[in-house]
Computed example of a mutant assay.
Amino acid sequence: MNIHDTLANVAILIASRRQAASLMGRNEEEALWRYVRALSDFVHVTGQVYRFEDSFGGAAPTERPLVSPRLGEHEGTFAQLAVELLLKTLAETLEPEQKQHVCLLIALLSFIAETGQVDEVEDFFSNQLEYAPVVIVHFTKYEEAQAWMKGVAEPPSPAHLLIGDDYHQFWYRREDNTRGMYRDYAIEPAMEALTARGIPPQLPSFATRVEAEEWLMSHPANPYAFVAIAGEHYFAVHHRRLKRHSLHHVASALNAWEEHKKAVELDTALEAAARSDGGGE
């Protein structure tokens, strides 16, 4: 079983423990299980899944892993409270597979501590709903992204890239060194929802994109904002890790989003029809 499948199975354990804590009214424990889930989400969106796997040698730990001493530097944080919960859960768990999953989560928390990312994860957990989907790298042109994708020996995966102003999902599979990327409509749902509520009549207005970008550097969107450039509406998206904004022409972006949804619906209908025809033979 590869690391992605293992983390998917671990997510099932987290969900069941979180649900049990919620049903029992143990709100603090339920919040800690949400934090533990955020750990897994964080390594995924920042492309660190294989880096994490390398930290424990590629074989999921089956015995109690060493807890990073650096966690002691974060007294009172979610990280410290979570490792205490995980150690308690490990001691109380009898089923071997579940024990292995808990061990993996302890190893994950130690990985975050050893790589100096505890504060970043705490921020990600507390504020992730207020941030745009994470992007790890920006390219001006598609060809630049392709050259990077093909040239990096161990690229971060999975992860979002920004090519121009467009999100792309990048993936890499270590087992056979396959890799690829595709256009991903990560912020269009938010743009659609905010536009439906009504674009504010009074917008920051600029003659050129350069002027808009300069203004946004000192007035960052949180994480989204509408601006006007040369009389046209744009949707500004703040990418905190990259310290930049992408700017999306509202009318064009929403048209592309509608075409994408139609294409997905058509593909889904064709697949359903194919399954139905096959089942009738």
Rank of each mutant, 00 (worst) to 15 (best):
M1S: 13
M1H: 10
N2H: 12
T6R: 07
L7R: 03
N9K: 11
V10L: 06
I12D: 06
S16T: 11
R17S: 03
R18A: 04
M24T: 04
M24F: 13
G25N: 05
R26W: 03
N27W: 02
E30Q: 06
A31W: 06
L32S: 01
Y35W: 14
V36P: 09
D41A: 15
F42M: 02
G47A: 04
F52K: 10
F52T: 09
E53P: 04
G57H: 09
G58H: 10
G58T: 12
A60N: 08
T62V: 15
E63P: 00
R64T: 11
P65I: 09
P69V: 12
R70P: 01
L71V: 12
L71F: 06
H74N: 06
H74I: 07
E75D: 08
A79N: 07
K88Q: 12
T89M: 09
E95M: 10
E97H: 11
Q100R: 14
H101K: 06
C103V: 03
L104R: 01
L109F: 02
L109H: 02
F111N: 01
F111K: 02
A113M: 03
Q117N: 12
D119N: 01
D119M: 02
D119C: 00
E120H: 05
E120L: 10
F125R: 00
Q128P: 00
Q128D: 09
Q128A: 14
L129Y: 07
V134K: 00
I136F: 11
V137E: 10
Y142G: 04
E143N: 09
E144R: 03
A147K: 14
W148C: 12
M149T: 15
G151V: 13
V152M: 04
A153K: 14
E154N: 10
P156Q: 00
P158I: 05
A159H: 04
L161G: 07
L162V: 07
I163A: 11
G164T: 08
G164L: 14
D165F: 15
D165W: 15
Y167L: 12
Q169C: 07
F170R: 05
F170C: 08
Y172V: 02
Y172T: 05
R173K: 10
E175W: 06
R179L: 02
G180N: 03
G180A: 01
D184S: 15
A186C: 03
P189K: 03
A190V: 12
M191C: 09
E192Y: 08
A193H: 04
P201A: 11
P201I: 13
Q202D: 03
P204S: 09
S205W: 07
S205F: 10
R209A: 12
V210K: 15
V210F: 13
E211Y: 06
E214K: 13
W215I: 05
A230K: 07
A230G: 07
G231E: 03
G231K: 02
G231Q: 05
E232W: 04
H233C: 05
H233D: 11
F235L: 06
F235P: 00
F235I: 11
V237P: 01
H238D: 06
H239F: 15
R241S: 11
L242S: 08
R244V: 09
A251G: 03
E258D: 14
E258V: 09
K261A: 10
A263K: 06
V264R: 04
D267V: 08
D267F: 08
D267P: 00
T268Q: 14
A269C: 04
A272K: 10
S276A: 14
S276Y: 14
G278P: 01
G278D: 13
E281P: 01
